[in-house]
């Protein structure tokens, strides 16, 4: 993949949910290795944008391209092949919480595994080494056989990251990964995400409430307000006035 080909490209994308228009006429490109922060108030369209990028929803208007493919023109098999290269970490974790940690981590393999391999692994966990390696990278290797719902919120967030590590995608998307964590944990998780992206030259797109973390951990900030892009710039170019503008409710 040449460096100049964008990982993601949105061409005049709009997204409607019934009467509500979540995104309006968005065009942007994200290139390999970029660490992009999406900032903006609740309901500005950050989550919707991420769900468009990973193919969970199809845009109402416009085109979403990922890795050189137009997502809305792929059949489900081709779409799954693209989705295997995109790992998503969610705000509400979205783990299967009555499975043991190893199975949630191994779920990262599901795009590649055959049905019988996946079934066998539920009985006797397979590729344990990979899982242990991923869990040690996020610092909770000892929780391998614990039931996921017995872990704390911060630990579960680490399990979700370990799953993405096992998936080993080209792109990591994270939807407010630190929204429910205390400042200390937030920093650890953000450091982790930044390292993971830098190590393997992965692209990172993360939506954040906290502007400071966006400045410190990303190299590009996209400000969304009421479904539209307010700014798209390097952190040092985003002035406090712009941020104030971002959280101002009415637009004149």
């Amino acid at each position: 993949m040449a460096f100049s080909v964008p990982v993601f490209e949105l061409k005049q994308v709009s997204q409607q949910f019934g009467q509500f228009s979540a995104l309006r006429n968005i065009s942007l490109q994200i290139y390999p290795g970029e660490r992009v922060a999406l900032v903006g108030s609740s309901g500005a369209g950050k989550s919707t944008l991420l769900r468009l990028l990973n193919g969970s929803v199809r845009s109402t208007r416009g085109e979403v391209w990922a890795m050189g493919r137009n997502l809305s023109q792929l059949n489900s098999k081709r779409l799954r092949q693209i989705q295997q290269q995109i790992g998503t970490i969610y705000q509400q974790l979205n783990l299967v919480d009555n499975l043991r940690v190893i199975h949630n981590v191994n779920a990262g393999h599901l795009g590649r595994w055959s049905f019988f391999k996946a079934l066998a692994s539920l009985m006797v966990p397979l590729e344990v080494e990979t899982a242990v390696k991923a869990l040690s990278q996020v610092g909770i290797a000892e929780k391998l056989y614990e039931r996921t719902d017995r872990l704390s919120g911060g630990q579960q967030q680490r399990v979700a990251i370990a799953r993405v590590l096992v998936q080993n995608p080209l792109v990591i998307l994270a939807d407010e990964p630190i929204a429910s964590l205390d400042p200390e944990l937030s920093r650890e998780i953000m450091d982790l995400l930044q390292n993971l992206a830098e190590q393997a030259d992965r692209t990172l797109v993360v939506s954040l409430h906290d502007v400071d973390f966006a400045r410190s951990h990303c190299d590009r900030m996209i400000g969304l307000r009421q479904g539209q892009i307010l700014f798209d710039a390097a952190p040092h170019q985003v002035s406090p006035d712009l941020i104030a503008d971002l959280y101002r409710l009415e637009s004149h």
Partner: peptide, 25 residues
Amino acid sequence: QRPLAALKAQGAPNSLIFLYGVLPL
């Protein structure tokens, strides 16, 4: 539905969403 949507978004086929998501839940 959220854990299932998460499995789907990473490209898991339906049979495996069933096995790793629906059934255990």
